[in-house]
Nucleic acid binder design. Structure first.
Length: 464
RNA sequence: GGCGGGAUAGCAAAGUGGCCAUGCAGUUGAUUGCAAAUCAAUCUACCUCGGUUCGACUCCGGGUCCCGCCUCCA
């Protein structure tokens, strides 16, 4: 019985899809004006695991993860670079796809871009005006901004648990007198000269920040769908505004269940672009493998804060190596015993709001069993190993060949032939019982980051 | 100021009203020429003060501290 924490009710709820056996999920992806940082990596990995597990549980999952490819930051960055905004966004979209692949993140079912949904966005803004939820404001250029009238939507604040008067009391934004209410937010932004723009009934302009997600999600998944996810920082105002827009426009419930993953922190401070203390995924990929980053992310429950440090990535590396070491040298089959008790434990962990740390503990228990069994009863060990691999795969882990994984370096490293030559030389020394020479060679390899293991009369190696 | 989350062993991180989380690190033993990997054993816990209970880290109340949102952010 799957339970998921719902940000709307702030409780774990028994999950029930709108349509039996099918789940429609929308996750806010990136605004593509820069490289992915670890916070983006967390969203990518978390919802990838959610999708994989839901599919493993038998659901057909329609997973939509959007790309916001037009907004103020994109325009500013493109201007700074002196390039067309679309050149900028397509570059970072490619980079994002590369990063996602490194992290073992499967492509979503659909990945809509805001610029491809312009007519739907405009239609939704028009609907909101027609229904009395939005109003226009003239600018000096004669074209118009369109604002959402927050006071017209009864449920405003239901996701973030905020009341309009509290929000006003805490008002920190400079008042824009074109707005009727400081909390009103822009749906359509009139273009200034030279800015990218689209024709609309209110003149040339571009969508405000939140409307694109309302348009894309309802277009791709329908007016009412199962799950909407994203980083915690999107809960307010982005998701709150999405609800206001979508429900006002469609007259239907927008989303049943909202999921928000916790922040990534660095030195106990939130990692964010505005604080400029973020690590990009590719920076980290120079030092650690994508799968190590993935493990690091999954070692904490998705709603908890995740503190970044090299030490924790090192721990992730060692822990993953343990699992791969366990599988190394075993010819593991795809099929496994579906009645293995570990499977039920794994399911219970994951059914409890995607408790990946506990799910990982199940994997380590299996690894212990495999290691215990492998010398006495190889077939029993293989059976357990098959279960281990199968469950790990649900988390997007242990998908690589163990041998290759253990011998591959982070950031794509060189050499190869030298290693075998040195190992041969060392083994010759060992046959001659020249231990000091043998140890010298081993130290030499160790300095190269190569660890040797003498096993069953053979010497195998891996990277430390 | 308004709203919300959290305090678990050296580090990280789950969880449970009474019985092993787990990973990393440490200690001891097995194995090894020595290591590594692995196995076995083992040391370190549940912020504080009360209450409920036969029994609480786990439930309830007070306190202290930390963090997040209320502004662009995944």
């Amino acid at each position: 019985m799957l339970k998921i924490h719902n940000s709307l009710t702030k409780k774990k709820e028994i999950f029930k899809s709108i349509e039996p056996g099918k789940i429609k999920m929308y996750v806010c992806g990136m605004t593509v004006y820069d490289l992915c940082h670890l916070g983006h990596a967390r969203v990518l990995v978390v919802f990838d695991v959610v999708t994989r597990y839901l599919r493993y549980s038998g659901y057909e999952v329609d997973y939509v993860r959007n790309i916001t490819d037009i907004d103020d930051k994109i325009i500013n960055r493109a201007n700074e670079n002196g390039e067309d905004f679309s050149a900028l966004t397509s570059r970072f979209i490619t980079a994002m796809h590369e990063d996602a692949a490194e992290l073992g993140v499967l492509p979503p079912s659909d990945e809509p871009k805001a610029t491809a949904y312009m007519s739907d966005i405009i239609a939704m803004v028009q609907t909101l005006i027609d229904k009395g939820y939005a109003y226009t404001a003239q600018t000096e250029q004669g074209n118009g901004d369109v604002y959402y009238d927050v006071s017209a939507f009864e449920g405003y604040g239901k996701l973030s648990g905020k009341k309009l008067e509290d929000l006003r009391a805490g008002e920190r934004v400079a008042v824009d007198e074109r707005k009727d209410d400081p909390l009103d937010f822009v749906l359509w932004k009139a273009a200034k000269p030279g800015e990218p723009s689209w024709d609309s009934p209110w003149g040339k302009g571009r969508p405000g920040w939140h409307i694109e997600c309302s348009a894309m999600s309802t277009c791709c998944l329908g007016n009412h769908f199962d799950i909407h996810g994203g980083g915690q920082d999107l809960q307010f105002p982005h998701h709150e505004n999405e609800i206001a827009q979508s429900e006002a426009a469609t007259g239907e419930t927008f989303v049943n269940l909202w999921m928000h993953n916790g922040f990534v922190r660095i030195n106990d401070e939130k990692m964010s672009k505005s604080l400029n203390n973020f690590f990009t995924v590719r920076e980290i990929l120079k030092l650690y493998k994508g799968e190590e980053i993935r493990y690091f992310v999954l070692a904490s429950q998705y709603r908890s804060p995740l503190n970044y440090s090299d030490q924790l990535l090192d721990t992730a590396r060692t822990a993953l190596s343990r699992l791969y070491n366990t599988l190394r040298g075993l010819d593991v089959q795809d099929a496994c015993d579906e009645n293995d008790p570990a499977i039920e434990k794994f399911r219970q962990a994951m059914d409890d709001d995607f408790n990946t740390p506990e799910a990982l503990a199940v994997l380590f228990d299996l690894a212990s069993q495999v290691n215990r069994l492998r010398d006495e009863d190889n077939s029993a060990a293989l059976e357990k190993a098959a279960v281990l691999k199968k469950l790990a795969n649900v988390l997007g882990l242990l998908e690589q060949d163990a041998e290759q994984y253990l011998q591959a370096g982070a950031g794509g490293s060189e050499d190869g032939a030298d290693i075998d030559a040195l190992i041969t030389a060392r083994n010759t020394a060992r046959e001659n019982k020249d231990w000091s020479e043998a140890d010298r060679i081993r130290d030499e390899l160790d300095a190269m980051g190569i660890v040797l293991e003498d096993k069953d009369g053979k010497t195998i190696w891996r990277r430390s």
